[in-house]
Structures are given as C-alpha cells and as structure tokens.
Amino acid sequence: MMYRSLFPRDLFAELDRLQREMQQSYEVSPSIRGLARGGFPAMNVGGTPRSVEIYAFAPGLDPAGIDVQLEKGVLTIAGERNADLPEKDDKAAVHIDERFAGRFRRVVSLPDDVDPNAVTARYRDGVLHISIQRKAASQPRRIAIQ
C-alpha cells in the first residue's frame, strides 16, 4: 500500500514515507551502521549445552584496555575507542565520519546456570569472544536404565 502524506509539504511525513519505502525494498537489513541503534560494540550471543558464547564486534581496541566484568549473572563489556580523525589544526578535510569513537558500555544478562569461575575472553581480529561454561550440575546427563 502506498503511504501518502495529507500535507505534501510536511517534511517529516515525507521522511517517514521514504523510510518505509526503504524498509520495504530491502528484506534483510544489511547495514552494520544501523547497529548504532543497538550500540557499540555489536553483539552476537549463542549457546551450547556446555557453554554460553558471546561475540562483541569491537575493532581497533587495545586488548589491555577492555574491561570485562561478570557480576550477579550480568556481563559488562566496557572500554574506550579513540577517534582516528586528524587533529583540528591539520589542514585536512573530513569527508565521511561513520565509525564509533568514545567510551562504550554494553551489558548482557546471562542464564542462571553459568559458572562465573569458568570464563575465558579472547580478542582476535577485532572480535572479543567470551565463553562462559555452564555449571556441571545443569548439563544434560544420560541416565542409565536399570
């Protein structure tokens, strides 16, 4: 259905219509920039019967400066990313400025069965991968039938 503004001069209605049309023309939303809504870094979370796996897409960080904390079932990833843009006094023109810069903090609440003492965190190719083991008691066990 076409969406038509009652007031052709209404700029916001026009923008709204444009946005709807854009969304309709793409079935998947491929833009990583759209993730600015969800915040930096973008995160993927998955689970296996033995562990919970968290991937934070946080490129260009100093691994020593990433703060990962696990407290009361809540995982917090925080840090700071410096802007690579040139200093103001340089005679440089900035044409595109899309990359995140500044302090960030993201929080994930974890399932109840994770073991806070069995956490590993690795930073590779700009992705922070945190793996948290589930407690042994909650893992599926095969029960022998007598």
Binding site: P30, S31, R33, F57, G60, L85, A92
Partner: peptide
Amino acid sequence: EATLMPPVNVFEDAGGITLFADLPGVP
C-alpha cells in the same frame, strides 16, 4: 548477495586520502 556495509572514516590532506574501515571478525 546481501552484505554488511562497514562503517568508514575518510579524510583528505594535501598528500592524499586516508580511509579507515571497521571490519571486525575478518582475518
């Protein structure tokens, strides 16, 4: 093929153009 669009910064000085692109997860 649908792809992700990496965010970039582009700036220009007298000698040329510098581009930074975020491509996390790419070896």
